[in-house]
């Protein structure tokens, strides 16, 4: 494998958890809900995925468990914000804090254990092709899942009736309710979808990226995902571009550090944030597009008047 192939591979690996977490949050926000608990759902996905993989010896069961853990956390959020109509910001923050604390407790006995790694896809013949073989056909399965999810979300939101209903609920929940759409149920479903992808993102960290459990191992990726959603103006294509840009600059920074260029490491490690923000600001200067795509009821609780 050439150095350039290795760089691209690491870029993809660094970007995928962001993309997974963010694509779910995009759907959640399109339905008008602001879930700040991504970090907490991710870290719970990471620890439970790791734990189940250790206990059962199957990385895939770990992935499945991570998805369930993410969904469970998100349903807690949904119950508080949709059924009890609690404040979404406060609830999201508490979900993050709960997830970070709970995962530390669950994971304390797994710290330092060598982990199980989800294997790479290996298609005989195709994966051995020169140059593109490893890159296109030799990634781990979650990379393909993340790309498929992105394309799927884009298609569903833009082309299908379910997507239209999600957008309608996010735009104006009163009107959607008046037309007879089950606002709360739609939001429950979207929140659960967001929880699932956050859980997947967590599993990616503890079963692919660094196959071990380290407390607090999400290291703020949930917040980056959140920012990506807003800056991408809620469009899946831009979201994917933003996630890969972030991953790319991050890895370049690591290589630059490795080569000893004499740039302060703090500056290098802040670069991805700066680059992502700049790129997405440039994209979102089209105010008309931004305003039209912004879910107008974002973050507002809904109480049907009956």
């Amino acid at each position: 494998m050439s150095a350039y192939e290795a760089i691209i591979l690491t870029v993809i690996t660094a970007s995928t958890p962001l993309l997974l977490a963010a694509i779910g949050e995009l759907v959640v926000e399109r339905s008008g809900v602001l879930n700040l608990g991504i970090e907490g759902m991710m870290v719970m996905g990471a620890v439970s995925g790791f734990a189940i993989a250790q206990v059962t010896g199957s990385a895939w069961l770990g992935v499945l468990m991570a998805m369930f853990a993410g969904i469970a956390m998100s349903l807690l959020f949904a119950f508080m914000t949709q059924t009890l109509v609690a404040n979404q910001v406060a609830t999201g923050l508490s979900i993050t804090l709960l997830g970070l604390g709970l995962s530390g407790l669950i994971g304390s006995s797994f710290v330092g254990m060598p982990g199980l790694k989800l294997g790479y896809l290996n298609i005989p013949g195709l994966s051995d092709l020169p140059v593109v073989g490893k890159l296109v056909f030799g990634q781990d399965p979650l990379v393909y899942i993340s790309i498929a999810l992105t394309i799927g979300v884009a298609y569903v939101l833009k082309r299908t009736r379910i997507g239209l209903i999600i957008r309608a609920v996010g735009q104006n929940h009163d009107s959607a309710h008046a037309l007879g759409y089950p606002v709360i149920k739609v939001r429950y479903a979207c929140i659960a979808f967001g929880g699932m992808t956050s859980g997947l993102a967590g599993a990616y960290l503890s079963l692919v990226y660094t196959p071990q459990w380290i407390e607090n191992m999400t290291a703020g990726r949930g917040w980056i995902a959140l920012a990506l959603v807003v800056f991408s103006t809620w469009l899946p294509g831009r979201l994917a571009a933003g996630a890969y840009l972030f991953g790319g600059v991050w890895i370049l920074g690591l290589y630059a550090q490795g080569m000893g260029l004499g740039i302060p490491s703090q500056l290098l490690s802040s670069l991805p944030y700066v680059a992502t923000i700049l790129a997405l600001i440039v994209i979102s200067t089209n105010r008309r597009l931004s305003v039209i795509n912004t879910p107008a009821s974002l973050g507002q609780g809904f109480v049907p008047d009956r």
């Binding site: 239209l164 957008r167 309608a168 735009q171 104006n172 009107s175 037309l179 759409y181 795509n293």
Partner: peptide, 18 residues
């Protein structure tokens, strides 16, 4: 309705379809 239950960011056809 007096205050239309329309979705501003959607098209005419999407609004009607809903």
């Amino acid at each position: 309705f007096q205050h239309f239950s329309l979705f501003e960011a959607l098209t005419v056809a999407e609004n009607i379809s809903l």
